[in-house]
Simulated scan of single mutants.
Amino acid sequence: MDNTFKIQLLETTAALITAAFGLVAALAWNETIKSIIEVCFSSDDTIWGNLIYAIIVTIIAVAATMLIARSIGKLKAIEAKKEEKKGCDKE
């Protein structure tokens, strides 16, 4: 078996396993947040509960996305500085 194929197979498998664990974690948080809303806003009106749930999940998703994007930006800046320094050292 070709090493390139083995690497691609392992990378794909790792990505799928990571995605599966991410889904399990998301479902666990889904149930947790729903339970908290039911306790805090005990009401017969599920529309308001669903609205509050959707708002909370949206805020969490936006915050997480922004944090991840910021972290990636910082890492890219660090790598760019390293590459720039390598280029200067060769001259």
Rank of each mutant, 00 (worst) to 15 (best):
M1E: 14
M1K: 03
D2E: 15
D2W: 11
D2G: 02
N3E: 15
N3A: 09
N3T: 14
T4L: 14
F5Y: 12
F5G: 12
F5H: 07
F5M: 09
K6A: 12
I7N: 00
Q8C: 01
L9T: 06
L9I: 07
L9N: 13
L9E: 15
L10W: 05
L10M: 00
A14M: 11
A14I: 02
I17K: 05
T18V: 09
A20S: 10
A20W: 00
F21K: 11
G22D: 02
G22F: 06
G22R: 05
L23D: 12
L23T: 14
L23Q: 10
L23R: 06
V24W: 01
A25F: 05
A26S: 13
L27S: 03
W29V: 06
W29I: 06
E31I: 00
E31G: 04
T32P: 00
T32M: 05
T32R: 11
T32V: 03
I33K: 02
K34M: 00
I37N: 02
I37F: 02
E38P: 08
V39H: 09
V39P: 08
C40H: 01
C40P: 09
C40Y: 03
C40K: 04
F41W: 07
S42D: 13
S43Y: 06
D44K: 01
D45F: 02
T46I: 09
I47W: 00
G49D: 01
N50Q: 11
L51S: 15
L51W: 04
L51K: 04
I52T: 04
Y53Q: 04
Y53S: 01
A54Q: 03
A54I: 14
I55H: 02
I56W: 02
I56C: 09
I56S: 05
T58D: 05
T58S: 15
T58A: 15
T58Y: 12
T58E: 06
I59A: 13
I59C: 03
I60E: 13
A61K: 02
A63M: 13
A63H: 08
M66D: 07
I68C: 08
R70T: 13
R70I: 11
S71F: 10
S71E: 14
I72F: 09
L75H: 14
K76L: 12
E79R: 10
E79W: 09
A80L: 06
K81P: 08
K82G: 06
E83A: 13
K85H: 14
K85R: 14
K85L: 15
K86C: 10
G87V: 12
G87D: 08
G87Y: 11
C88S: 08
K90A: 14
K90E: 14
E91H: 06
E91K: 07
